[in-house]
Design a protein around this nucleic acid. Structure first.
Lengths: 202, 202
DNA sequence: GAGCCCATGTAAAGTGTTACATGATTGC
DNA sequence: GCAATCATGTAACACTTTACATGGGCTC
């Protein structure tokens, strides 16, 4: 029931519309929140309303009609009970790590360096945002929110450090030794060459 | 097509069975890989075989009958083309951060400390595994695999550092100031109390 | 009046997990 | 002989995204 609880959590800050929730999640703040599409948000909001966790505060004052949702007492209770449940361990899907750790020696390292460089730029962008966010003067960030953001900051900085080290190592071809007790590196290259019918280069 | 490519990547190391792939992913190595269930693995392997990316090497020598899958030349090609595609930015779903940043001041901090402590233990377990893995003498880890593991190590150590700092801050009630230009903290507590009909404590 | 952002919603397609069924072999 | 592990597979369910439909207001 995680999407529902995320919605309750967002609504705990202040009453919001479905559209608004989506935009809040758009810049998704470096892993603090994760994205949701309208296709999940609107039906879930309706469901939460049907079940009595939230209610609509119709708004028409600014010309546009929109549906503001607010938590009911049942909604607050559900939200707070969810807060008390020990969180499950985070899931990280990092394609770069997957690719890097399955990269093989007949594949040009330069392409990998390109991937790392792209990642570096993206991470720098997010880090810049994360650093400015708690000082922009208008966003609401609670004391504990600041602690969470501190984590994002530390994590992103660690990542940049690792990227720099990795690019260095790749450029100098100064890579650490792996662990290959059964000569797998060679076997892999042989299997590959046999399969694609290539003769050994170098 | 990400699950498919993950399967090709795993098979690039050596021919494997569906069962074997699942076990490889079981300890999922700190975010380097992510889990898959039999319900995805077996149908996808069949699909990949039908499409000519992998083929079966029937095995019956050890009593048990199992289906070893190996990459075809088309499979190697597809795998390597996938390696060349710039990876998308990682998705992190961290419920602890979500809960922490939406925690409010009428919720007992002790529970949050419990969550952090649990997370600390889980992270320590994984870190221990990650550190021993490249030195256990039997696992195959390529040079680039070692670099990836280095990242996992750094990330986990950063996390532990942040957890320690956060627990300290919570215990001493020495939290950083947030950013609250519109008095949202108070508004939130008022909305909540109004909703659940509680009078202000403290 | 064209294009863009605000705003709500749905149907179909895609993707994945859970739970079960089945059966052989190994270790105690 | 019984439990655990090895091994393959599927059907039903859950969950999400994609793509579309709709319409008002704002700005140039």
């Amino acid at each position: 029931m995680s999407v529902e609880h995320t919605l309750l959590a967002v609504l705990s800050f202040w009453p919001s519309t479905g559209y608004n929730i989506k935009s809040e999640f758009e810049h998704k703040a470096a892993g603090l929140y994760w994205g949701m599409s309208y296709g999940s948000i609107y039906p879930k909001l309706k469901k939460l309303e049907d079940e009595g966790f939230i209610y609509t505060v119709e708004q028409e004052d600014e010309g546009r009609k929109k549906k503001l949702y607010e938590l009911t007492s049942k909604g607050w209770e559900e939200f707070e009970n969810w807060l008390k449940v020990p969180p499950s361990y985070p899931v990280i899907k990092d394609e770069l790590l997957m690719k890097m750790s399955t990269w093989h020696e007949d594949m040009d390292y330069d392409i990998l360096i390109t991937h790392l460089t792209k990642r570096k730029e993206e991470t720098e962008d997010i880090l810049r945002f994360v650093k400015e966010w708690p000082q922009n003067g208008y966003s609401y960030i609670s004391k504990l929110g600041t602690l969470s953001i501190r984590f994002a900051e530390m994590r992103l900085e660690t990542e940049l450090k690792w990227i720099a080290e990795s690019i260095e190592a790749l450029k100098k071809d100064d890579l650490p030794n792996g662990q290959d007790p059964h000569g797998n590196t060679e076997k892999l290259l042989e299997r590959r060459r046999k399969a694609i019918g290539e003769k050994k280069e170098k």
